[in-house]
Design a protein around this nucleic acid. Structure first.
Length: 734
DNA sequence: ATTTGTTCTTGTCGG
DNA sequence: AAGAACAAAT
């Protein structure tokens, strides 16, 4: 097979340059994935490189899987031995095998955001600092950047000793680090940091991996941070065959430490580096590219680059200003109906917004209009309490000295082990420098506990120990089932017998099927791998893309993706660009790059919308069109705004709040469907059979009076239980 | 010990 | 507007 077929000259050059450092400056849609996959195939097939000697780092696990698949397709053979994954998953893989060399146990736990918050809270309490002065989120973000820059706590405290606040932050960092170690846990930043430390302190191990990874690829290089740079610099140290792909105009993660300097200084960092610029775009129409170029040229800190295509200059970019966010959503819903009518598929359409909170009005509108959609990010399955609880059980069983997880489950479900008891155990454990689990192993020795508390703790301990026994004897799925059973978690929910409880049970069952899936896909992999894999999933990884659904997500999540039709919504000053970026030129340029990313996701159609009033942070307010819209100049169509009679009343200063959400408002200028009349007078009672536009037939099983409305619960034949508002739900009696 | 009600705070983006 | 922290009641 000829791996150069169908590539342009620049792309061919990139494929053929196999040895030595290479930077591919790949504009949006310039076929970089194609280049990388062809290059890997070329290496394996023509240069006889063993797949296990190739390492490719991508931004999401999904991207890694897709890349692997495409290479396998090109070669018509499996390439399972190739290392592909995100920085984090690659690091876990290395650490899992070797972390004992730097004093951790190989069964370490990975702490997610919520665990981090609990932990830092613990630290703030213990150090007795004013928690209104030291906010969890901001302390954590400081700690994150310390780790990125490899500043250790002691050093930081010393340097900033005279500055009280900074010293305290250093002390929090120190305590946080100490506790993580004590609990045998690593946070996301540690995964990178500890991998680097491990390799730095063990030369033979570094040598091993350097030998192994003869060819290294890094995608989305513009969004790598310092420590990631350090890691690839180390790993590529021997062979120097490092190929990075990126686009400085798409750097959108500076706020979490991404260093645009990595890509700008590549030639300096890797002497003899070759740079190849890919400017031909295969994704979008010229109109869309012109628009993107027009916006991004306003950034001062950039390498000049201009995307072009040989596609016809057809299609339009539509811009529409609506009076509020609900109308914006309805406008979009209407357009989508038209597109689908014309034969476009839902999966080719995406709604992109700046903040997750914006998804709400679109959800409402799409539900009413019967448009199939999925949301990436936002309310995440793995963030649900019940799922996190079960995961905490698993974490404890894998790594019992993880106090954070232990405290989460010791009284969940309620076992009569209250805060006081927990605190006493904790104090006892701290005094003796052991974990809470170790302390309760001999609970009888804890004198501060009463007889009642002791016996409750004892039975909790017996349950945990019983499960530990089974951990290695049962398969993953059977084990998780056993955990759900023995913990009494589901039993407790069943007793509750409410809709919420039943939804929770459903979610737990859903989690169980996740387990089954994992077990089938990864034969022989154990609990540790399972836990690691679920904590390292990105938002994009967590959504299924089999179904033919409209995608709604943030612009950040959309990085690397493409859609035939894109709706870029909420283009308002203060929202996009977000108000916090106003006083800082660098932040503003990042917002502009984000806008550039959004525009360049579109292949054929791009709709840009905004609203004149929006409820932001609980308050209705007026907003101006985004400055980016001004920058688009004549590249977008600006319709003169025709105001209908009622439209005028709405926008002439009347206080417009969320309550009018249910009002019978007029259809807007674009002919969005008028809202449905409220169905308060529908004769609904327990046992009524109803038909929902989306979920089909169901039976009313619960009715609750609400102000001006009724909240009803319907058991659908297919979809299970759903809670709906009678006033707005698209249902009718059958 | 746990549930329930009230006040207070906070507010992007994400592995 | 929503969630967390806190206080009071059962």
């Amino acid at each position: 097979m000829n791996y150069l077929e169908g590539l342009n000259d620049r792309q061919k050059e990139a494929v053929l340059h196999t040895d030595g450092p290479l930077l591919i400056m790949a504009g949006a849609g310039s076929g970089k994935t194609r280049v990388v996959t062809h290059k890997i195939a070329y290496l394996i097939e023509e240069k006889n490189i063993y797949p296990g000697n190739i390492l490719a780092i991508t931004f999401t696990n999904k991207a890694a899987d897709e890349m692997k698949e495409r290479v396998a397709e090109l070669l018509d053979r499996d390439v399972d031995h190739m290392w592909m994954g995100t920085f984090h998953s690659i690091c876990v893989r290395i650490l899992r095998m070797n972390i004992d060399k730097i004093g951790y146990d190989r069964s370490f736990t990975i702490y997610d955001r919520a665990d981090q918050i609990t932990l830092i809270r613990e630290c703030i309490q213990e150090l007795n600092v004013d928690k209104s002065m030291y906010k969890e989120a901001s302390v954590l973000s400081r700690i994150s950047s310390f780790k990125d820059e490899q500043i250790d706590p002691e050093e930081y405290i010393k340097v900033n000793y005279s500055d009280y606040r900074e010293r305290k932050i250093g002390e929090l960092y120190q305590l946080y680090t100490k506790k993580l170690k004590q609990y045998n846990a690593l946070d996301f930043d540690d995964l990178l940091l500890k991998a680097v430390e491990l390799l730095r302190e063990n030369k033979d191990l570094l040598e091993f991996y350097q030998r192994r990874f003869q060819y290294i690829f890094v995608d989305e290089y513009q969004d790598t941070n310092k420590i990631q740079y350090e890691l690839i610099k180390m790993l590529s140290g021997k062979h120097g065959n490092i190929c990075v792909v990126g686009d400085s105009d798409q750097s959108i993660y500076a706020w979490r430490g991404a260093d645009i300097g990595n890509i700008l200084n590549f030639e300096k960092d890797f002497p003899g580096a070759r740079v190849i610029l890919l400017e031909q775009n295969y994704r979008s129409t010229q109109k869309i590219l012109d628009l993107a170029n027009e916006v991004i040229k306003n950034n001062s800190e950039r390498k000049k680059k201009r995307l072009w295509t040989d596609k016809a200059d057809e299609g339009k970019i539509h811009y529409e200003q609506l009076s509020d966010s609900d109308r914006e959503a309805h406008f979009v819903a209407n357009k989508i109906h038209q597109l689908i009518y014309k034969g476009y598929k839902p999966k080719d359409i995406a709604i992109l917004y700046r903040t997750n909170a914006q998804s709400r009005s679109f959800e409402d509108a799409f539900m009413k209009e019967d448009i199939p959609y999925k949301i990436v990010g936002g309310l995440r399955f793995y963030d649900r309490k019940e799922v996190k609880d079960i995961v905490a059980y698993l974490k404890v069983l894998q790594n019992p000295i993880d106090n954070i997880s232990l405290k989460r489950i010791i009284n969940t479900p309620k076992r009569g082990i209250g805060n006081v008891t927990i605190e006493r155990i904790e104090d006892y454990a701290n005094e003796r420098g052991q974990s809470m689990y170790e302390s309760i192993l001999s609970v009888d020795n804890i004198d501060s506990l009463g007889a009642g508390a002791k016996s409750k703790v004892r039975s909790f301990l017996e349950m945990i120990n019983g499960l530990m026994d089974k951990k290695d004897r049962l398969g993953l799925k059977d084990f998780v089932e056993e955990v759900i059973e023995s913990s009494g978690y589901v039993k407790d929910l069943e007793k509750e017998d409410t809709v919420e409880a039943r939804t929770r049970i459903d979610n737990i069952m859903e989690f169980l099927s996740v387990t089954i899936n994992f077990q089938e896909k990864n034969e022989g992999e154990d609990l540790e791998e399972f836990l690691a894999s679920i904590s390292l999933l990105s938002d994009v990884d967590k959504t299924i893309d089999k179904d033919n659904l409209i995608t709604m997500m943030t612009v950040h999540s959309a990085k690397g993706l493409e859609f035939n039709t894109v709706f870029l919504v909420g283009m308002e000053e203060g929202l996009f660009p977000i108000s916090r970026s106003f006083d800082n030129e660098e932040d503003l340029e990042e917002e502009r790059r984000l806008c550039y990313v959004a525009i360049t996701r579109a292949e054929e159609h791009l709709y840009i919308t905004n609203a004149k009033t929006r409820i932001l942070y609980g308050r209705a307010g007026y907003s101006l069109p985004s400055r980016f819209i001004d920058e688009m100049g004549d590249f977008i169509e600006r319709k003169p705004l025709i105001k209908s009679g009622r439209e005028k009343t709405m926008s002439s200063g009347r206080q417009y709040t969320g309550t009018s959400r249910f009002g019978n408002t007029a259809s807007n200028i674009l002919g969005a469907k008028p809202r449905e009349e409220s169905k308060k007078d529908l004769d609904i009672q327990l046992g009524s059979k109803v038909k929902h536009r989306k979920w089909g037939i169901g039976t009313v099983v619960q009715i609750e009076d609400k102000e001006n409305d009724k909240e009803i619960v319907i058991a659908f034949d297919k979809e299970g239980l759903k809670k709906l508002s009678l006033a707005v739900a698209p249902i009718e009696i059958v």
